[in-house]
Simulated assay, not measured.
Amino acid sequence: MKFKNIAVGFAVGVTGGMLVSFLNAPKSGTELQQSLKNESGNFKSQMNQLKVEADEVKSSFLKTKHESQEVFNSLGDEIKTMINNFQADINPNIENIQGHIENVSNRGEEISKDVDNIINRKKR
C-alpha cells in the first residue's frame, strides 16, 4: 500500500511539474528545439576549434622539443671542441713551464752544491 501511494504521488508531482514548466516556458516547443539545435551546433564548432588549437599547441611543443634537443646536442659538441682546442693550446705552455721548473730546480741544486763546496773549502 505504501509503495502505491508513493508511486501515485511521484506521478502526480512529475505531471504537475511538467505542466507548470510548459505553461511558463518563454518559447514554444519548436522555437526551443531550434534554439537548442543552434546552441548544440555552436558548442560543437567551439569544441572542434578547441581540438584544433590543442593539436597546434601539441605540434608546437613537439617541434620546440625537437629543436631544443638539436641545439643542446650541437652545443655539447661545440663545447667539447672548444675544450679540446683549449687543451691543445695550453699543453705546450704547460710543458714549457715544466721545463723551466726543471731548469730552476737543477740550477738550485747546482747552487746548493757550489755553496756546500765553498763552505767545505773555508773549513779546510
Rank of each mutant, 00 (worst) to 15 (best):
Q98S: 13
K4T: 11
P26N: 02
V71R: 15
K123N: 13
G76F: 04
V115F: 05
S60K: 15
G9V: 07
S59P: 02
S35N: 08
Q34M: 08
Q34P: 02
M47H: 05
E102P: 00
F22S: 07
Q46G: 01
E70D: 08
F10Y: 06
K80I: 06
L62T: 08
I101Y: 04
Q46T: 02
F86M: 03
E39Y: 12
S74P: 00
F61Q: 09
S35D: 12
L75W: 10
E56T: 13
R121F: 08
G9K: 15
E67L: 09
N73M: 11
Q69H: 09
I101D: 01
I97C: 00
K123L: 12
E67G: 00
N96Y: 13
V14I: 14
R121P: 01
I111Y: 06
Q33R: 10
P26S: 01
I94V: 12
E67S: 04
N24P: 00
I97V: 13
F86W: 07
I79D: 03
K122V: 08
K80Y: 02
T15D: 04
N106D: 08
E78H: 03
N117A: 14
F43M: 09
D77A: 06
F43R: 15
N106M: 08
K122Q: 12
S74L: 07
S21A: 15
G17L: 13
K122S: 11
Q69E: 13
N117I: 10
K80W: 01
E39H: 10
K123E: 14
A7Y: 12
I6V: 15
S105W: 08
S74E: 08
D89M: 03
L23Q: 11
T30D: 10
T81E: 14
E67F: 05
D116M: 10
L36W: 02
V115C: 02
T30C: 02
D89I: 01
P26Y: 01
A25V: 02
L75P: 01
N5I: 10
S45Q: 14
N42S: 12
K37M: 09
M47F: 11
K27N: 07
K63Y: 04
K65R: 13
V12E: 07
G76L: 07
R124D: 13
N5V: 09
T15A: 14
G9S: 14
N73Y: 10
N42K: 13
N84Y: 02
E67D: 15
L50R: 02
A11C: 01
S105R: 15
R121W: 05
Q33F: 06
M18A: 07
S105L: 10
